[in-house]
Design a protein around this nucleic acid. Structure first.
Lengths: 143, 143
DNA sequence: CTCGATGCAAACTATTTGCAGGCAC
DNA sequence: GTGCCTGCAAATAGTTTGCATCGAG
């Protein structure tokens, strides 16, 4: 049993929510891919695999996964939200090309210190951070 | 004449776009406030001041100001985009409370070095960055 | 004068929701 | 069996757009 399904089961179990085949299928699909996906893409991928789960259920499942710490929104692009699965991955930041949309992931250890500083200075209990650097990738610079 | 209007005039002038009273009013309104505003808020603020500019025009103006470097989107909250004016301000990052929405601005000089590193390592021409740290503010932690 | 901008209302589209079964527990 | 979940379709809401008209250059 993969860890992410265990986490989902535990999350749901402790709040009298149900572990359904639909929710499991969405998690399996999301953890089988390693990209920045949209709800529509998950829906279509499952549909092609003969798992006909309604868009509404996918939309209803994602926030649960976000709250369970398995998934996080990465950014919005033209009004569409893109997510990534976060469980099992070291936290990372994104370098995105504004022209072609290419995304490079990188880690930035210095941000841990920034979080600590902010916690101390402003009394916040830090939950996390999101750093996105934007620009033009090598290919798009030539055009 | 304030700098932001000069910049707008210049931006428009160099691409045969028109410097209209509506565009000027939107810029004046945006630079008169120091918050993270939505399109609707700008529209209503102008409306209260008897400047009846259509929502459509505000929506059409914002992307121009973003491209001109006067304004930037800060974050999305429940599907609504919030912006801030950037011209005349040192670049800063945001520390946001997930419960009450309170936002603290802070500057993080270390990010300039991060940008340089990324430019070198990945060949990107960096345009800018957005760092958002989230958590619970002191008040909300007590609840 | 000419062509880009405005206002209005209608269109769009991602996302949410009400409701009638269905199924996890 | 109970009540949470699903699928469907309709509703919602921020944003965009077509079109007739206006006005900046």
């Amino acid at each position: 049993m993969s860890d992410e399904l265990d986490i989902l089961r535990q999350y749901l179990g402790t709040r009298s929510m149900r572990y359904t085949p639909e929710r499991e299928a969405v998690v399996r699909e999301i953890f089988s891919r390693h990209d920045h996906f949209t709800v529509e893409e998950v829906y279509l991928a499952l549909y092609k695999k003969r798992r006909h789960i309604s868009r509404a259920s996918v939309y209803r499942t994602i926030p649960i996964l976000v709250d369970a710490g398995l998934v996080a929104p990465v950014f919005q692009e033209g009004g569409i939200t893109r997510y990534e699965h976060t469980y099992g991955h070291e936290h990372h930041c994104h370098l995105r090309c504004l022209h072609c949309g290419r995304v490079v992931e990188f880690s930035e250890p210095a941000l841990a210190a920034v979080e600590e500083r902010l916690a101390k200075e402003h009394g916040f209990a830090i939950r996390g951070h999101k750093l996105e650097v934007t620009g033009a990738c090598p290919t798009c610079q030539k055009m």
